[in-house]
Amino acid sequence: MAGLHHLYLTVGPARFRVASTWQRPLDQLAALYGDYPASQDSYADFTVRLEPEKPWRRYIRPSVHISGDFWLPDAAPLPLNQSLLAAEMGMNLQMALGWRRHLLLHASSVEKDGKALLMTGLSGSGKSTLSAMLAEKGWRFMGDEFALLNPDTGMMHSFPRLISLKNEAIAAMQAILPESRFGPLMTGTPKGDIRHIIPPADAVQKMADTARPALLLFPRFGYDPILRHMGKSEIFVRLTQASTNYVALGETGFRTLTKFVDTVPTKAMDYQSGEQAEELIDSLWNKLS
């Protein structure tokens, strides 16, 4: 059986060993994660594996099967030119199924003055793009996929992976960022076109800094700009749906999430452009104590 190439990555509090039949995705990861802390000791919380679906598929129309310490039985393989996406999905999968040290919320987050703004919502809500945009406007980027809530302290921890841009968002960010911040363009993925960007330098340098959750938004793109009140019951239910490990954490998850819902101001936000969103966010942020 063929050996595997491998690479260690540290993102926020999590350490990964990414093992792959092919060197290429690891080279891409190494380039994009070049400024992240390097592993000195080869410890890892999770192993991600990228392998051919069948041994002969290593060379003939190669497809990447994603697995690792935690895996899904029906995960569909990706073509080899999307292996960077496969690696990112593999790391997400380990977090979603295996991470227990924080309550995981499927949300993007940014920080200012030690306070965190969280944005959660369905795919297409724009939470990832909004966090990338705010990260270029004075906020510290904390993550666009998972926000980590510490059950003991109630603080948010950063998980600043590469930012994943989809479709129209790619051109929007290309307009304001240098080419050197971008990974390869991957077309025809299950989610359309995808291009990763390297988070700003301070997001990586300060990835161990925590922040107090100060505002939660449920953004919705494509509607007239408005901020709407949400009842706590609705917020609670939607956050349980947005958490991959709420049930797995048992009583700890319950206590952490109820405290969060009781203390963090929350609004639904409709918007049609980044400028509108920024204005609405500023109006709320400036009123926070």
């Binding site: 706590k232 019951s233 048992g250 109820t258």
Partner: peptide
């Protein structure tokens, strides 16, 4: 059980099942 009121509803966390 742990009861936690939220506006119109009440959450009940059941320790034996882990269900909310």
């Amino acid at each position: 059980i742990i009861q936690h009121p939220l506006d119109s509803m009440t959450l009940i966390f059941q320790k034996s099942s882990g269900v909310t």
